[in-house]
Design a binder for these strands. Sequence first.
DNA 1: TTGAAAGCGCTAACAC
DNA 2: GTGTTAGCGCTTTCAA
Lengths: 347, 347
Amino acid sequence: MGASLKDVAARAGVSVKTVSNVVNGYTYVAPHTREKVEKALAELEYRPNLSARNLRRGRTGVIALALPELDAPYFAELSRFVIDAAVERGWTVLIDQTDGLADREREVLQGIREQLIDGLIFSPIAVGREELAARTDNTPLVLLGERILDGPTHHVAIDNQRAAREVTEHLISLGHTRIGAIGAQDSPGANTARLRLAGYRQALRAAGLPYDERLVPPTGSYHRADGAALMRRLLDLDEPPQAVFCFNDLLALGALRTALSAGLRVPQDVAVAGFDDIEDGRYSTPTLTTISPDKARIARTAVELLDALIGGTGRGGRRADGPPEVREVEADYRLIVRESTVGAGGA
Amino acid sequence: MGASLKDVAARAGVSVKTVSNVVNGYTYVAPHTREKVEKALAELEYRPNLSARNLRRGRTGVIALALPELDAPYFAELSRFVIDAAVERGWTVLIDQTDGLADREREVLQGIREQLIDGLIFSPIAVGREELAARTDNTPLVLLGERILDGPTHHVAIDNQRAAREVTEHLISLGHTRIGAIGAQDSPGANTARLRLAGYRQALRAAGLPYDERLVPPTGSYHRADGAALMRRLLDLDEPPQAVFCFNDLLALGALRTALSAGLRVPQDVAVAGFDDIEDGRYSTPTLTTISPDKARIARTAVELLDALIGGTGRGGRRADGPPEVREVEADYRLIVRESTVGAGGA
DNA sequence: TTGAAAGCGCTAACAC
DNA sequence: GTGTTAGCGCTTTCAA
């Protein structure tokens, strides 16, 4: 173990407190003393022991980011922004990967890492309203990417239903009347799926189009493989859809692959739209029409909210104002129309 | 702040030590006592304070994973495996995003989070041999994805040069004689780039093909946009290449996009190969020929190595055997031939 | 089998 | 300006 404050104090011939003062940048240290201390600090290569500091301060400067899968591009992109925002405010981020498993998510809520983390940013998949309400751990929590409930939990999300409606309306405006959807889910927690499906149905209804269950095959997960498999099913129907709205870009990229390798032209033979605006969709051929949530904004807002809840900065400072009133922040999004729905010459 | 051992002890009418024994699952606690204590534990919803435990034990159960960008698919996929492997062994993982910046990487090496983490897995980009050697912090370290040097640093990597040679040989075997490369870098740290370029040149030389600098434009970073821009440059040459080896899949996907939207057929007009085998390349059209490093294996090996270096498990156990002799682990990889070099009918 | 008490390294109230 | 000291919550000898 490295040198402690005591060691440094002994070497510099001063008290522990003085060394602490220097280390923490307090004023009122005589220049001469400061110099001596800094010399000792350097010679001994002093590094503060964070465990001790945390124990004393009652906070760790660490927040946890719990999400389903780090390797799903949407979450990877989001994480990058969350970490950026957190680091900017002096926090260190610890990652918890739940794989969308209900048990793991429950563990996260009950605070496996409690006392190690000062706060938690959590993107739930499987867990629903009841479990959130049943939470006993009182580590500050901000929910991400979902409007789970109107309960007592702070969260930041886009309006999934409205966004889904807009995508569907876009497809309808293109003249399509037979529009499939990939991404419906049965599981109880699946809130995103439910909202996006609701938006899709809403748009159909408004346009006087029928809702055909065969065009909305359910899926267990949201990976490319699922999109590819379900697209195949849709194309095998007697009357395949003219357009397909996928509930995320991964599904859409899988669907795209299936359509293209079946020899279909996209969007001429079948149009495809996604959701999330991951970078892949900006470079696929054709490029992907999608909903683009303001990820940087979502991440920043979540961190700021959490920061306010914890009541200070990761560096140990204290906030004057109390916890914020706002508990539900709605983030912006944009519909981005690209080649997969409006063509472009190529492919 | 929650209940402490002392609170529990008071409530159960026993000493702190006894509660500690129960919490830590020690033997030799009378059943009756244990019962009492467990009751108190439950009633008070006791959660151990990790800062205190860490301070006492001298370890935190936390390791850091430092990498350039969480949103680059290769690193996202790798992270997922590193976290999986770490959690399996009782470690919690904290993420450090360096953006490939030399300064940030240096900070990582000097141990910004020292005393908070028991070990570090680091995927360097900018930093080179000297800086690694100059490291003073002695937190156990395992390097990832690079064979930086034959110095004193443990690492796990694939043979980049050999893999690059194999890809190039594959392109040559297809009859191409004018083969470009995208991904060369000038910066001093850029070891991956150097190794992959060396492999490329080696293959050309072995086949008696000339090395043409115009076919190897340098790049600052490894994103899709860079691949797209450089591909445009290659296509604008008087004699554009018949095939292009991109030093990672992101560059390749960008290059693919440029080629396709220029109306070229891939691989008929120009073949494209990548490196990393990220999932995007398995669903792009055409699918991407690439080098597939065994990421799960790399991650697991790195965690095991680190675990051994630290000398115990994250749960606080102790290892009997000393640190391992092996310092350089070479991971497996495979060349995966897909449509972007050998066609397939589609596109 | 259980208890008392020291001390991990640090911060902060208080004294000088 | 600087020093003394208590104690954060936990583990761990050492005694009982």
